[in-house]
C-alpha cells in the first residue's frame, strides 16, 4: 500500500496523529506509574514497554496505568487488569512459577555447577600435589618485599 504524500502535512492526514497522554500524577505516584509501565509490554509495538514506547497507543495504555494508580489500586490489581486482556504475554518480566523457574534458576544453576567444578578441580589438584610431596610453586627463601615481588611478577609475565 503506497500513499501519495498529502500536501497539508501539518494536519497529519494519512498518518496516525500522535496523541498526548494524561498529565503526570504527583511525583511519587508518577514514579510508580513509570515503574509499572516498565514492566508492561506495549500491545502495538515490538517488545517495548509502554513506558518506553513512543507509540500513541502505548500512551493510552500508560494512561490506564495512571488512572489505576490514581485510584490507589495495588500493583497486583494493575497487572491483573492487563493480564486479563493479554495474558502473561503482557508482563515483560515473566512470573516465577512452573516452567518459568527454568528461566530464573537455569543460569544460577549453571553458575553454581561451574563454580563447584572449578573449585573441585583445584582442590583435587592441591590434594594430589600434597600427597606427592610436590614443592610449593612459590620458591621458599627470604620473603621479598612486596614491591619487588610485584615487579618480579610483572617481569615474569612479560618474559614468558
Amino acid at each position: 500500500m503506497t500513499f501519495a504524500l498529502l500536501v497539508s502535512l501539518l494536519l497529519g492526514q494519512g498518518y496516525a496523529p500522535q496523541r498526548q497522554g494524561l498529565d503526570p500524577l504527583e511525583a511519587e505516584k508518577e514514579a510508580r506509574v513509570m515503574r509499572l509501565g516498565k514492566q508492561l509490554r506495549c500491545a502495538v509495538c515490538q517488545g517495548v514497554s509502554i513506558a518506553d514506547s513512543p507509540a500513541s497507543m502505548a500512551r493510552a495504555q500508560l494512561d490506564k496505568v495512571r488512572e489505576l494508580v490514581a485510584e490507589n489500586k495495588s500493583d497486583e490489581e494493575i497487572y491483573a487488569y492487563f493480564i486479563e486482556r493479554y495474558g502473561e504475554w503482557v508482563l515483560l518480566q515473566p512470573t516465577t512459577g512452573g516452567l518459568n523457574s527454568v528461566l530464573w534458576l537455569g543460569p544460577v544453576a549453571l553458575l553454581g555447577v561451574g563454580l563447584i567444578i572449578i573449585v573441585m578441580q583445584s582442590k583435587r589438584r592441591a590434594a594430589a600435589s600434597a600427597a606427592a610431596g610436590a614443592p610449593a610453586t612459590t620458591p621458599a627463601g627470604p620473603a621479598p618485599t612486596s614491591d619487588d615481588a610485584l615487579l618480579a611478577q610483572v617481569r615474569a609475565d612479560l618474559e614468558q
Binding site: 496523541r19 494524561l22 500491545a43 497507543m57 493510552a60 490506564k64 493479554y86
Partner: peptide, 13 residues
C-alpha cells in the same frame, strides 16, 4: 478520543 475503550478491549492493532 483517548483510546480508553480500545485499551479496555485489549485492542492490539
Amino acid at each position: 478520543p483517548k483510546s480508553t475503550v480500545a485499551v479496555d478491549y485489549g485492542v492490539s492493532g
